[in-house]
Simulated scan of single mutants.
Amino acid sequence: MSSDRLIAGRYRLTDPIGTGAMGVVWRATDVRLRRTVAVKQLLLTPGLTRAQTVEARMRAMREGRIAARLHHPNAVTVFDVAEEDGQPWLVMEYVDAVSLAALMREKGRLAPVEVARIGAKVADALAAAHKAGIVHRDVKPANILVADDGTVKITDFGISRATGDVTVTSTGFLAGTPAYLSPEVARGENPEPTSDVFALGSTLYASVEGKPPFGEGDNPLAVL
């Protein structure tokens, strides 16, 4: 599957490189700067009213701009936030890497020394983000990229809040990945830097033990 679609008159999509609850990620070319980038079409939470959709779109643009303030070697850089056909698109640094989640599926339990190395790099990026006033809100294996050369980068800063993914909505529904959520987020409270630390701990635990500390049952409420 490929596409020559041009987003915001600047980013030419070439092929999809990943999908998730919050959107589809495409490899793309920035035709102005002639460089390869990753472009994510952010999928807003279904079932929103028109007013809620407008607010979610504005929030996505705002959160993307906040994430663009962070510059760290272990965090995927956000270059731009664009809007096309009423949908927000996040333009990011392209990283030729697989997610920690994919590594766990492929290899099962990872060596503690390797997990410690990955965890230290992610923790360093989170510390820089927290110092800049940015909370990730959705630290989990799928949001950590690990390249063959040892490069480790965390991605999707703040995007869970932007799309309404890991929040309690007006109907009281909690979406996201309960297995890695901190207790306060599970209760519907606003995430804090400590929430990211808890989620990173859950992620590293899962990498070594093969499953998150509270399991991954079919019933999200039971996990919570």
Rank of each mutant, 00 (worst) to 15 (best):
residue 102 A to M: 05
residue 179 A to I: 13
residue 101 A to L: 10
residue 148 D to A: 15
residue 35 R to G: 14
residue 44 L to H: 10
residue 55 E to M: 09
residue 72 H to S: 00
residue 4 D to F: 04
residue 34 R to G: 13
residue 2 S to D: 13
residue 123 A to P: 03
residue 155 T to V: 02
residue 105 R to S: 13
residue 74 N to W: 05
residue 194 T to A: 15
residue 42 L to Q: 04
residue 184 E to W: 10
residue 182 S to V: 03
residue 207 S to P: 01
residue 119 G to H: 04
residue 10 R to K: 15
residue 190 N to V: 15
residue 69 R to S: 07
residue 172 G to P: 06
residue 154 I to P: 00
residue 51 A to Q: 14
residue 73 P to F: 05
residue 178 P to V: 12
residue 154 I to E: 01
residue 21 A to P: 03
residue 212 P to L: 08
residue 103 L to K: 14
residue 162 A to T: 11
residue 58 M to V: 15
residue 73 P to C: 03
residue 165 D to I: 03
residue 128 A to E: 11
residue 92 M to K: 04
residue 14 T to A: 07
residue 45 T to C: 05
residue 219 N to E: 14
residue 23 G to I: 12
residue 28 A to K: 00
residue 183 P to W: 05
residue 43 L to F: 13
residue 112 P to K: 15
residue 187 R to P: 02
residue 7 I to F: 12
residue 2 S to L: 09
residue 134 I to D: 06
residue 163 T to R: 01
residue 125 A to F: 08
residue 65 R to D: 06
residue 223 V to E: 13
residue 15 D to I: 12
residue 3 S to A: 12
residue 4 D to L: 06
residue 124 D to H: 12
residue 159 I to H: 12
residue 101 A to Q: 13
residue 171 T to V: 11
residue 88 P to D: 10
residue 131 K to I: 09
residue 31 V to A: 04
residue 215 G to V: 11
residue 61 M to A: 15
residue 163 T to D: 07
residue 154 I to D: 00
residue 122 V to M: 04
residue 122 V to T: 05
residue 44 L to D: 08
residue 32 R to P: 00
residue 121 K to R: 15
residue 207 S to T: 12
residue 13 L to R: 01
residue 105 R to I: 10
residue 211 K to C: 09
residue 24 V to N: 07
residue 37 V to M: 09
residue 14 T to M: 09
residue 219 N to W: 08
residue 115 V to C: 02
residue 74 N to L: 09
residue 47 G to M: 05
residue 137 R to E: 11
residue 106 E to H: 13
residue 2 S to N: 08
residue 23 G to D: 11
residue 56 A to S: 06
residue 111 A to H: 11
residue 16 P to C: 10
residue 34 R to M: 12
residue 42 L to D: 11
residue 105 R to F: 12
residue 71 H to P: 00
residue 43 L to K: 15
residue 8 A to G: 11
residue 171 T to R: 14
residue 25 V to E: 02
residue 205 Y to E: 05
residue 154 I to T: 01
residue 66 I to E: 04
residue 200 L to R: 00
residue 146 V to W: 00
residue 61 M to V: 15
residue 209 E to C: 10
residue 49 T to Q: 03
residue 88 P to F: 03
residue 64 G to R: 01
residue 173 F to Y: 14
residue 150 G to Q: 06
residue 27 R to P: 00
residue 45 T to L: 12
residue 67 A to N: 07
residue 147 A to M: 02
residue 147 A to R: 00
residue 115 V to G: 01
residue 103 L to T: 07
residue 59 R to L: 14
residue 126 L to Y: 11
residue 137 R to C: 13
residue 27 R to D: 02
residue 224 L to K: 14
residue 113 V to N: 08
residue 174 L to N: 03
residue 37 V to D: 09
residue 154 I to R: 01
residue 121 K to V: 07
residue 29 T to A: 13
residue 111 A to E: 13
residue 152 V to P: 02
residue 154 I to M: 00
residue 98 V to R: 14
residue 46 P to H: 06
